[in-house]
Write a protein that binds this DNA or RNA. Structure first.
Lengths: 109, 109
DNA sequence: CGCTTACGTAAGCCATCTGTTACACATGCC
DNA sequence: GGCATGTGTAACAGATGGCTTACGTAAGCG
């Protein structure tokens, strides 16, 4: 679950989001952020070490691609907890029912 | 997504896992780890700030309960990426097909 | 060849995190 | 009240994280 640590940083989550839309070069990515390019280079290294992105050399450019593998691991880690928030919605209903009344059932999703 | 940062730490993930099985007192929780009790107390504070656990005073004990709300937020954050690892499995199939042959289709899940 | 372009890496700085020991405080029991 | 029990907090040390500037290096171009 090294990926969780990598994704704890907002900048890195944003990079992942950008790459989900399509591959990009390092400098191109850096353009989206208010920090310097070396800072982004480091973030990319962390993401690479976590297996979340892959690099490919294309001439002098380094093109980054998202690798969703670790994301699916997080998804798997999360799985056992899913039943809990289903339960919680029920508890919430009960709570809410004390003050308001009905019209909550539909918002269950 | 403050919860992601909280869950970046293995000890805190373990605490969450323990609480998923049922509520526990602070000292009881600390017993499961090789670190001192104040260290666990801090971890609990981080989890509390992230909204992942709730505390209830019961006599002199502090009973901790898991709050799965933030976990469902992570789940929601993850949602847009799900289609990506479905795609990736297809790509993997192609890759594998170059070396081996069939008998992969069933493992698709 | 030099010079530019596109990157990564090194070094240094400051903030934050994690762990420890020492201490403060409320509850429970006599 | 007085002492044990269960916990959180304070203070401090060491490690880690993220940012910046300065520099190294490989690919492209004239």
């Amino acid at each position: 679950m090294e990926a969780l640590a990598a994704l704890a940083d907002p900048t890195r989550r944003e990079i992942v989001a950008l790459l989900a839309a399509g591959e990009q070069g390092a400098g191109e990515l850096a353009g989206h952020f208010p920090v310097t390019r070396p800072a982004i280079s480091r973030h990319l290294r962390v993401l690479r070490d976590a297996g979340l992105v892959r690099v490919r050399a294309e001439g002098q450019r380094r093109v980054y691609t998202l690798d969703p593998g670790p994301l699916s691991e997080i998804d798997a880690w999360l799985a056992p907890y899913r039943r809990l928030w289903a339960q919680r919605l029920d508890a919430l209903d009960t709570e809410i029912a004390r003050g308001r009344r009905a019209r909550v059932q539909e918002d269950r999703r």
